[in-house]
Design a protein around this nucleic acid. Structure first.
Lengths: 339, 339
DNA sequence: GTGAAAGCGCTAACAG
DNA sequence: CTGTTAGCGCTTTCAC
């Protein structure tokens, strides 16, 4: 069980320093000795102990990933994207649930630092002062996903949420809709909440149409939350001819509530989602949505972080990936009359 | 930055061994020295370096979790359950994607051992000889989820998949259905594939009804796979009056294909799922399914593993949690005529 | 180029 | 009870 660098050194007839040099390619080593070492390593199936190595090098091959909730398929896809690239580079992911709690975030951040992770991918609804302080006190590389941070040393990858929301809202406005409701997340969520809502508002402004406060439905990112809020909206006698949901899960909750209320999608109400998680395509009806390149976002975040960790200079620190509208059956293609 | 146990020892005026004893409560220490140490620790905000500690103690506070794919909401829920309990015990999860590949599984297993994780939660489609060998060679605690392993030292948590599949199939048979198709996973997947299929078959046997080979649809766990296989089934002119899908995602793919083919659910075809992932309730139509206590499964797995790691004796090594059938709108409640 | 030796920060065995 | 002394397995000066 105790297979160490010493055994390799003994078998190869060299010192352990030489073995270390061969393994790390840190210094030139004589060709024949090198071969002997390599052969010994192979024969013994030797793998250096990363904990020991971590102790001296101050690195662990671990990357902390902080997400609100893995059961939200958006985050799951992101994590998968990250995992794909870190696997290639021999890193491992340490997964931390924050459940949208800033306290939990800080707690995890501290624990991760103590566990000497090499870097962090951070998905939070809002970058707070406490976060900034943390990352400036600890020179731990960090990439924010879906969140910008005006910190010079951190990276981010995102899409233009504002623009996307504006586009989908305009799509409805142009086709004559006037009663366009929005299901939005808390505005404390900078991108998915605030920016998407702002895009919705500005689309109205652009078209010189006043938007109505009662058409703003407040929800969380959970299906059931959107379901409830739409149900209440309908129960109270309100109507909309189109609904802009700011996530696909919200769209699902909305559609379900609409259907339960006897309405037909898209004939009576058109609904759009956001993110294009896999289920959007397979829901009934399939959901028109803003496609984000989710896996790509995860991959990019992972790549940037690893580049930073390994000391490769990254030119683009804040990457904005392209989005697009995917038209499916939850909206009509033909223009409708004014609602 | 170099805040070590030595600084604490110096400030407290004791040896570092004493500091270590206080931190770990490993040996009795004089009350006043103890207090001095505690005060010094607080003052310096000292946190022991887990890497150094890991090197000597051969433990890291890390738990490896191997899953096929986090974007499958079933696995995501499990991971969340695990995370909930390990967080309480100050452990962290190292997440590994295996993508159903046995090679990747072995690769991760080896890397995790080298990273000195304290234990592993393993979700694999099949426990192979290589796995057994691995876990017998390395006395690494392991809990299998949804998979039994006749190894005396490993744990498992699961439901009775065979029984559940038999029940749902009987439900259809009793109500007069005869053309009951099944969408099944590869039989190499012991529980979700083989056992659920066996339950389906045995329900037919129990009712003395021969089952038809052409009604067995082979799929993977992905929505699109089930969609395709059902589409082909229909395109080839086959018909079924009920479909037993062996996962909710398969049920979704099936329903979607059925609807695209102009069929109505449940009027023309009844469909049941398996697992009761959150979307099952919010799909349109909502899906009748076998409920597994998914989060509970994850939590139990985490608890058993931690108990094992911390040397608490676990009496029940193979836990089977209860399941139940949840009736929703993808099936009819009233009996139908023979199909 | 290569080996001996000194740590990385911590725990544990051993005396006292 | 407590301090001293070895290491854990590896990397990295520092001489040779």
């Amino acid at each position: 069980m105790k297979l160490t660098i010493n055994e390799v050194a003994k078998l190869a007839g060299v010192s352990k320093a030489t073995v270390s040099r061969v393994i790390n390619e840190s210094k030139p080593v004589n060709q024949d000795k090198k071969e002997k070492v390599l052969k010994a390593i192979e024969e013994l199936e030797f793998k250096p102990n990363p904990v020991a190595r971590g102790l001296v090098q101050k690195r662990t091959g671990l990357i902390g990933v902080l997400i609100p909730d893995i059961t939200n398929s958006f985050f799951a896809e992101i994590v998968r994207g990250i995992e794909c690239v870190v696997q290639e580079h021999q890193y491992h992911i340490v997964l931390c649930h924050t459940f949208h709690s800033h306290e939990k975030e800080m707690e995890h951040l501290r624990m991760l630092r103590e566990k000497y992770v090499d870097g962090i991918v951070f998905m939070t609804s809002k970058v707070t002062e406490a976060h900034k302080r943390f990352f400036s006190e600890n020179k731990l590389p960090v990439t924010f996903v879906n969140r910008k941070c005006n910190d010079l040393r951190s990276f981010s990858v995102d899409i233009n949420n504002y623009q996307a929301a504006k586009e989908i809202t305009s799509f409805f406005l142009k086709r004559g809709h006037r009663q366009i409701a929005i299901i939005r997340a808390p505005l404390t969520d900078r991108t998915s909440g605030y920016e998407r809502f702002k895009g919705y508002q500005d689309a109205f402004k652009m078209h010189n149409i006043p938007f109505k406060e009662h058409l703003v439905l407040r929800s969380t990112f959970k299906i059931e939350s959107a379901y409830k809020v739409v149900k209440r909206f309908l129960d109270e006698g309100h109507r909309a001819t189109a609904i802009v949901a700011t996530s696909d899960l919200m769209a699902i909750g909305a559609i379900k509530a609409l259907i339960d209320h006897g309405l037909r999608i898209p004939e009576n109400v058109e609904v759009s989602g956001f993110d294009d998680v896999p289920i959007a395509m397979y829901y009934n009806p399939s959901i028109t949505t803003i496609r984000q390149p989710i896996i790509e976002i995860g991959k990019t975040a992972g790549e940037m972080l690893i580049a930073k960790i390994e000391g490769i200079t990254v030119t683009e620190k804040n990457i904005v990936l392209p989005h697009s509208i995917i038209f499916r059956k939850s909206t009509l293609k033909s223009p409708v009359l004014e609602g």
